[in-house]
Write a protein that binds this DNA or RNA. Structure first.
Length: 606
RNA sequence: CGGGGUGUGGCGCAGCUUGGUAGCGCACCCGCUUUGGGAGCGGGGGGCCGUGGGUUCAAAUCCCGCCACCCCGACCA
């Protein structure tokens, strides 16, 4: 494949677009890879689309390798299957809905669990047909409240989604593990850094779930990790529970006047005044936060969460725990006169108490721990209120925020918080969709069993942005060889016609003789500076300059990533390029580019 | 959805306060010169100033609505 810059549909920009904040967005637009076409929607230009297809190719090869089979659904889907699983309403404003001329409802698929489930139900009915993994690479639509960061969060994007079907849980575990391995291979080949974090299954139902996060400061997901290798989504972090303390000999609780202490800060200040030797901090207080749970059927229930005063309730963690119910601020104090705002204590909380309000506590609240907490009277707090002696609770909930320095649940050290972009997600769905849509097969003994499923996603267009994000430098894009829009960028510069003749000959041999994809800067009357800048911006991994050195019989080979330049004799130019393309680096450098170990194909995407 | 900011040729910006013929740099076209780090000179083409309404003799400029984009938050297989 030969891409001549004299006729390539490409215009690079000298200035950064003002509305692009993140580097991937800025550079992809500036280098002429993508162009915004709609809110949250982008047009792929020739070079960008080549990168996109390369990512797609890697994903496809690895899915095929693990034995998944590719199918392709429409993006325009009927309402009924989504009605059956409840997601027509559950998805809310995030789904694009439309009505056809007969008034029938449709949606633009945000994800395809229902359709895959129905397809398998349509054709298969025996355990002998399973296990089965199907996938597609599809345009997905989500009416995001706030599309941002270019390709990273669009309203239309490309996703590889796959689904596994098994008769039993052991089979699901195997399918899940296969996908996990395939994803590791995919992201390794793409040269994308990732951490695999355990995630909550949340509204999707099911059990085991892990996300592949690409760590980057511009990421939208917060996750935690420890020096010992623990990594998890904040929602999935479990608290290390302290040992219970024997109740014998603990001091009696006592109520103290603590006027004007509706907040933890004011309370701690007063507590320190009253008992200067006790060394009280916010950690010694028990904060009781009232929220309202709204269930999917619309019913509302107040809930109080008790947690150490040095922590806030983490809305995401709380929601993950109470899903599918939603959490809203509690406003109905007038209907609950026993609840004294700012002085709420656990003595009147719990299903067996005066208020009957459900009371869940942080795991750090274990038997024998002593707390300063509200006395349920304005201006009064109780000290030394002992958990398990002076108050009880209905259950334990992981709703407190995770703070840097908290211990990892597996004992692998203190946690740090980091940001990442979700580039893949693997998920044990279980039988939720199979049950809702009636996907059953006959087992060995002729009984109907409900199939168990997994769902697995890779953000293809998002991966393009993530790769750009992690590989660019101050000069421009800098593609890994596996996804680069060309194998080599040949720059002809100078006014001597012999230069262009020599470059043409070399390019022809690389393209026709060796099947390389060559981006050839054959533009006449364009100054060398412009061509060099463009080559750096465009980011093809190997740049070959045919210019003034030709008079001395040499051309210059440059590695985009390392910046290293080597003069090679014209006669050896072809072999030097081939070595760079095959080896992933110049002889003099060791960049360890991904794909280096892979068999080199003589016709990559030509 | 809440808060903040911005909308002027393809890109980056000025003009708006104080209403009166729409401007600059890059990009694009023509000519001459130039050719190893975003060239120089000369000559051109291209914009219902986001959009709808209002005020006014007159609106890019003043007023109101809407839309879009960016940032923070909420939300998000």
């Amino acid at each position: 494949m030969l891409l001549r810059m004299s006729s390539l549909f490409l215009r690079t920009l000298r200035d950064d677009p003002a509305d692009a904040e993140v580097p991937s967005h800025r550079l992809l637009v500036r280098a002429g890879y993508i162009r915004r076409a709609a809110p949250g929607g982008f047009t792929w230009l020739p070079l960008g689309y080549r990168v996109f297809r390369n990512v797609e190719r890697v994903v496809r090869e690895e899915m095929d390798r693990m034995g998944a089979q590719e199918v392709h659904f429409p993006a325009l889907l009927p309402r009924e299957p989504y009605e059956a699983t409840g997601r027509w309403t559950e998805y809310g404003d995030n789904v694009f809905r439309l009505t056809d001329r007969r008034g029938a409802d449709h949606l633009l698929g945000p994800t395809h669990e229902e359709m895959f489930t129905l397809l398998v139900k349509d054709l298969y009915s025996s355990y002998k047909d399973l296990p089965l993994s199907l996938y597609q690479i599809q345009t997905k639509y989500r009416d995001e409240a706030r599309p941002r960061a270019g390709l990273l969060r669009g309203r239309e994007f490309t996703m590889k989604d796959s689904y596994s079907f098994d008769v039993d849980d052991a089979g699901l575990d195997r399918s899940y593990a296969q996908h996990r391995e395939a994803y590791v291979r995919i992201f390794d080949r793409l040269g994308l850094d990732y951490v695999i974090v355990s995630a909550m299954s949340g509204a999707m139902g099911g059990s085991k779930s892990e996300e592949f996060l690409h760590p980057t400061p511009i990421g939208e997901d917060t996750f935690v990790r420890s020096p010992g290798g623990y990594a998890a989504n904040v929602e999935a972090v479990t608290t290390v529970v302290p040992d219970a303390v024997p109740l014998d000999g603990l001091p009696e609780a006592h109520v103290e006047d603590t006027p004007d202490t509706p907040t933890i800060e004011t309370l701690v200040a007063v507590a320190q005044q009253l008992f200067p030797d006790a060394g009280y901090t916010a950690r010694d207080t028990l904060k009781n936060v009232v929220v309202t749970l709204v269930r999917p059927d619309g019913t509302r229930e107040p809930l109080v969460v008790g947690l150490p005063g040095d922590r806030e309730v983490d809305a995401k963690r709380l929601e993950a725990q109470v899903a599918p119910a939603e959490v809203q601020p509690f406003t109905e104090f007038d209907q609950h006169p026993l609840l004294v705002k700012g002085y709420l204590g656990p003595q009147i909380l719990g299903s067996g108490s005066k208020t009957g309000i459900r009371y869940l506590v942080d795991p750090r609240v274990v038997e024998g721990t002593r707390w300063i907490t509200g006395a349920n009277e304005p201006g009064k707090h109780v000290f030394n209120l002992v958990a398990g002696r002076d108050f009880g609770w209905d259950g334990v909930i992981e709703a407190a925020e995770v703070l840097p320095g908290d211990p990892a649940p597996d004992g692998s050290g203190p946690l740090e918080l980091a940001r990442g972009v979700e580039i893949g997600h693997i998920f044990q769905l279980g039988r939720k969709y199979a049950e809702a849509l009636g996907l059953q097969v006959l087992d060995e003994s002729g009984r109907l069993v409900t199939v168990t499923m997994g769902s697995y996603g890779v953000g293809v267009s998002r991966a393009v942005a993530a790769i750009a994000e992690s590989t660019h430098d101050e000069l421009g894009l800098c593609w890994p060889r596996e996804v680069a829009p060309a194998d080599v960028h040949v720059v002809a510069t100078g006014k001597d016609p012999a230069i262009f003749t020599a470059a043409e000959e070399l390019v022809a041999e690389l393209v026709d003789g060796w099947g390389l994809t060559v981006l050839f800067d054959d533009r006449p009357k364009v100054s060398p500076g412009v061509k060099f800048k463009d080559a750096e911006l465009l980011g093809v991994p190997t740049i070959l300059t045919v210019g003034r050195g030709l008079a001395d019989g040499v051309v210059e080979l440059r590695d985009r990533a390392s910046g290293e330049r080597t003069d090679v004799p014209v006669s050896g130019a072809r072999d030097a390029v081939l070595a760079a393309v095959r080896g992933g680096s110049q002889p003099a450098t060791e960049t360890g580019a991904p794909g280096a170990e892979l068999a080199w194909s003589p016709t990559p995407g030509a």
